[in-house]
């Protein structure tokens, strides 16, 4: 069965590119959320296989969204990858220590993104 990734980013252009990349290159199914709050609702209702979560978003940012997902027993086990435009080594280490499965950098190569996502999540080819 095709795996489903929830892409959360407040930038519609980036969601569109990530969707094309993950669907066309990676053969994955993509659903989208434009904010942290919307992501919480969709994760609870759709139970995606993974969440690709932008760090810098207005109001509820990526790390806060991750913390809220972790706090909810229904969403706690869904793996999360963070996508960030300013991955400082210290921040990255802290997020990984908190249980985030991977930290991917912006800008990304759309031909590489599906492989990076799969590798971080331990999904086979």
């Amino acid at each position: 069965m095709t795996r489903c990734v929830l892409v959360v980013d407040d930038e519609p252009d980036i969601r569109a590119v990530a969707r094309l990349s993950l669907e066309r290159v990676g053969g994955l199914r993509v659903i989208e959320a434009s904010s942290g709050m919307e992501a919480l609702d969709i994760v609870a209702s759709s139970q995606p296989d993974a969440v690709l979560l932008d760090v810098m978003m207005p109001r509820v940012d990526g790390p806060t969204t991750y913390a809220l997902l972790q706090a909810d027993p229904r969403t706690r086990d869904i793996p999360v990858l963070l996508l960030t435009a300013r991955a400082d080594a210290t921040e990255r280490e802290r997020w990984l220590a908190e249980g985030v499965r991977g930290v991917l950098a912006k800008p990304f190569d759309p031909m590489e993104l599906p492989r990076l996502v799969s590798e971080s999540l331990g999904w086979g080819p």
Binding site: S21, R86, P107, F108
Partner: peptide, 21 residues
């Protein structure tokens, strides 16, 4: 953040176009 956000869209779109996806 402000520079990399548009760069991400541009890089992604051009990458997909260039690869013939």
């Amino acid at each position: 953040h402000e520079l990399r956000t548009p760069l991400t869209s541009m890089r992604g779109s051009l990458g997909l176009l260039a690869a013939g996806v």
